[in-house]
Design a protein around this nucleic acid. Structure first.
Length: 279
DNA sequence: TACCAGGGCCTTT
DNA sequence: AAAGGCCATGGT
């Protein structure tokens, strides 16, 4: 990985398995905006990062090498050898095909609390609306920074707003689930720090104690918010993949603990190539 | 095991 | 312009 200083920020060159735009569009995060084909803005760590496509690689505007090394390198999971992981999938032709198509995806190391609420909001919902509701939630209950960015609201602020306080974000039937998550995290009944240190199985069981959190949402939170790379969320798209290419059942045990990364490749590949139609 | 729960995006008419 | 399908689901 090579970092080059530029007048606008810092340029990352020669990173084969990294496309931040593809990584945003693969459905793992929701606080981003596509400005045009060559520019995205992304909110994470309480700040806005503008990313531009560059002839050499990717330009991260308004940041320097020190901030990039200490904040963004780990956020974008740049320390992990995705090339080696993809090689490990070589025994599975479908995953290898999907990985070839979607090899720019990296799993962002997102905040666990934000990921939990975001994927509760995602249930039975479409991505433009998920983004809108999260944005409204941050504007309603987050704190505005000097640069005008709203933080993701704390469990305390959501719990104290109450279900009627959430009405303006128009999250529908999910509001009661958001409140339940906030109350359980606030009281310590569900402890995110404990999940981070514990096993995948314990984390799954703990997250599912929250109303509105089932297998699918819990696995998304474990994968995207806690970095459990073996978490394997199965949604309508993955059901389709499993039915169509794997005869209705799927065994993750041969994926070397990286089932979640394989899932991202399959999910993105299927969504991008199927057009939503039958075959 | 069906069916229901906000709401709005998006495609089709 | 209006209609209807659909949506990174889970509870009952």
């Amino acid at each position: 990985m090579e970092l080059i200083r530029s007048e606008n920020g810092i340029i990352l060159c020669g990173e084969e398995h990294f496309d931040p735009f593809m990584s945003c569009e693969c459905g793992q995060c929701f606080r981003f905006e596509k400005r045009n084909n060559d520019e995205y803005s992304l909110i994470a760590h309480g700040r806005e990062l503008v990313i531009r496509r560059d002839p050499c690689g990717w330009l991260f505007c308004g940041t320097d090498e020190e901030e990039f090394r200490s904040v963004w390198e780990s956020y974008f999971d740049l320390d992990r050898d995705y090339g080696a992981i993809i090689k490990g999938f070589s025994g599975d032709a479908k995953i290898s095909e999907a990985a070839g198509y979607a090899s720019g995806i990296r799993i962002f190391r997102q905040d666990a609390w934000e990921t939990l609420i975001s994927f509760i909001i995602s249930q039975n919902n479409n991505i433009p609306r998920i983004k809108k509701i999260i944005s409204a939630l941050c504007a309603l209950l987050g704190e505005k920074s000097e640069s005008g960015i709203y933080s993701f609201p704390t469990a305390e602020s959501i719990a104290s707003s109450g279900i009627e306080g959430l009405a303006p974000i128009r999250s529908g039937f999910r509001a009661k689930y958001i409140i339940d998550a906030a109350e359980k995290v606030l009281s310590g009944e569900v402890e995110l720090e404990r999940i981070a240190k514990g096993s995948y199985e314990d984390g799954l069981a703990e997250l599912k104690r929250i109303k509105g959190v089932g297998d699918k949402v819990a696995n998304c939170v474990l994968l995207f918010g806690f970095g459990f790379c073996n978490a394997f969320p199965i949604d309508v798209w993955m059901k389709k993949v499993i039915d169509r290419y794997y005869g209705g059942s799927f065994d993750i045990s041969s994926l070397g603990g990286y089932a979640g990364i394989a899932q991202q490749y399959l999910f993105y590949f299927e969504r991008s190539t199927s057009d939503g139609k039958g075959e």
